[in-house]
Write a protein that binds this DNA or RNA. Sequence first.
RNA 1: GGGCAUAUAACUCAAUUGGUAGAGUGCUUCCCUUACAAGGAAGAGGCUGGAGGUUCGAGUCCUUCUAUGCCCA
Length: 893
Amino acid sequence: MELAKQYDPSEAEKRHYEYWESNGLFSPEVNGDRNAPKYSIVIPPPNVTGSLHMGHALQHTIMDVLTRRKRMLGFRTLFLPGIDHAGISTQKMVTDQLWKEEKKTPQDIGREEFTKRVWEWKAKYGGTILQQMRREGVSVDWSRERFTMEESLSKAVTSVFVALYEEGSIYRGARIVNWCPKDKTVLSDLEVEDKAKKDGKLYYLRYPVKGTERHLTVATTRPETMLGDTAVAVNPEDIRFSDLVGATVELPLTGREIPVIADDYVDMEFGTGAVKITPAHDPNDYEIGLRHDLPQLNVMNDDATMNADAGADFEGLDRFKARELVVEKFEELGLLEKIDDYEMVLPVCERCKTIVETLISEQWWVKMAGMRDLALDLKRKEDLPKFTPHNPHTKVYTDWLENLRDWTISRQLWWGHQIPAWYDGEGNVFVARSFEEAAEMAGTEDLTQDEDVLDTWFSSWLWSFSTLGWTKPGDLTEDMEEYHPTDVLVTARDIIFLWVSRMVMSALKFVGERPFDDVYITGTVLASDGQRMSKTKGNGIDPLDVFDKYGVDATRMALAGSSTGMDFAWRDERVESFRNFANKIWNATRFCLMNSEGATVDPESILSPDSIADRWIVSRLNRTALKVNEALERYAFHEAVQLLYHFFWDDFCDWYIELSKDEITSGDAGSRTRILTVLEQSLRLLHAFMPYLTEELWQKLPGTGDALHHPAYAGKPASISLAGFPVGDRGFVDDRAEDEMGLVIDLISKVRNIRSEMRISPSVRIPLHVAADGSTAEALGSNSAQIVKLARVTDLVLASELDVPKASAKAVLSDGTEIAVPLEGLIDFEKERERLSSQIGKLEEEGEKLGAQLANRNFVERAPEEKVSAVRERVGEIEIQLKALKENLQALD
RNA sequence: GGGCAUAUAACUCAAUUGGUAGAGUGCUUCCCUUACAAGGAAGAGGCUGGAGGUUCGAGUCCUUCUAUGCCCA
């Protein structure tokens, strides 16, 4: 069989995913072993509006590596995919489209029609990211794909709402909230982000004190809110104002009179020390208002224009226009003291970046204290999910829990789970699982359902179990029993609070167990400039472009290989190196296949390796497998990638193929079989990371098929994804073979060094003399043909003593074995002197360091025995080598 | 303001419980040796951000400073 000279990923990527998916290889049911242990992961659901970005690619790669390995180990493996309905962004998207295409607003077509349009939109565009995930090669079970708005998950949402309401954990109340005037909905604290505003202003406004000639000056960043002021506050300790506490201020522009109050909250250092209090439009003022029983005067509409209570001059004005007008009028009245420049931080809507308004609004809330305590109990029992990397996530997570506040769950949207609360004509509320149930409770069908929907997170916090068929407390579906709790959650730092902690609380509350054992928090993929990727900066990198350019497998290797849990800057060069690696694997396989006649993959063939090279590669293979498995068990993806890269490229390609090349090309069936088998094992190890390339090549190797499957997948469609994952066997780790092979490699490298330094053309063959006895002579002698070939020497002269002319280049192997290349006529004495001197210099430097250590009695007495003897051993080696090198140098004179 | 993290070769990053600092890319020199030039061979390149301290021994532990990033308020 002849392969192309270069690997073309695009072709393999098309074919194999289709094969895997249509044969259901990623469904846990493919596992025929009823007693197999399970392994389950639920995907963090991307937004239905979303498309694949680097963060997804990273997380999905990690999850897929974990899943594929476990599947190959024979676990009943479930990797469950799905998306969430992303209330705000989806509604926005469809609203925009409606306006663009029909010049209509959602209100124009009504709720029912609008919701229909969203479903149509979802059917048409909502699957984008799911298709992109197929391209990534993720081995998810598509037969279990979930969507937060589908019937079963909606039932779960409703039943959880009702259960919490019935126990008194959900209530409705007017409180100060974050309000997005553009999306016209309330936002939870977590959906608001801070944005620095460097060119902000601090306005100093004078309020006349009633019955005096005095003014009280307040400093504010938001003059327009003064229209809703209901007090001025000062610190009770502040002697500047102590006589004014209890006085009345005439609030300009409004004709209202408001009191001067004293409250600890006021910072004497800030501004003037006097603070205007607007309980209806500032969270801190709201609290102060409650403490002092102040009226809450709402002066704004839901679109952040001023309302009638702001006064006739201001009604209808946008908040920023109103600000200008307020300042103007203060100026006219001579009440504007000054305006300072002021750097500040503004709260903005996480989605549309509009400046968030704080106002008082009637919303639904969840009391979190009870569930929070359940989660903190886990901490006490030291049974929290295990975070990787451990720090600082565990602490951040528990700190946050301890300061948890109630959660606003209603949203003023039409797209989402409509709140299951109905009102009768008198305003009584009935919370029920359905209209029928509510009607029965109310004794009338004359009910209207609450207009609002629930926060999207109110459905995704149930994701770990709602996706497994759970619809109500007590539900124990087959999938729940089998796959919950899941094994690991892989996600990004930014949703530890929004999602991870809430999932823990909901699972504890409703299922009575943790939703997952481990949490792996990935680092952030930064742009190549080290900055965060962002649309506005235009420095983002589209994973699909990278797939096209370098192939999916190379991209996955680059991502997994960078996944230490730290953030890392994206570098195309790194992916390129893995594309080259993929090509290396391709060509190594190409070589084996070109010489595969009469041979077939046969695991038995490497069970009793005979030659040093065979014992060595089998040892390296098993050692690598052991380490890769160990690394993956502790989520050290980058270590696993490094191990595989170096095993395959250095050990297998650079040495094993080269050492066995003659035997292979001359048709030795045994050698051919062994190399095919080692290759096949390597492909299996690589499969979790590079699924397409390995499947492509595995299918081409002679002797592969379902017979190589893990026993749990006997008789299933042949795929490397069902083959056993090599776990490695300590019995095959052969230190002696590795030492002996190390000598051969050292010898060849030293000769190559001589050639290179002496500038001997590769076409010129040179003689090689080696002084060795015993096992060294045996190891080198049994590989003499390979040494001759790889060091390009005429022949290898092995004797117990060197017998070479003065004009020879010499070197010493790590065990002290002396080697010499007689180079009559070729050798440049000056160069050889330099070469030897530089090597002597290096060894002397190392020897001095180590010698100093040994001279230190404290080291010898206090350091562990094995450390000391290791240093002694190394010093011994150095001494032997130095002696020989120095003699060689002298011999040149 | 509080908390956390990071600072290692030109670049991007590694370094198990403290025990002679590694990789990939880039760079230099040589080679199209029929698996692979997306390749092969040989090299150069680091007082591990600064300053103290603990220790026989510190990239690793402690203190402090500087710079950057993230989270919370």
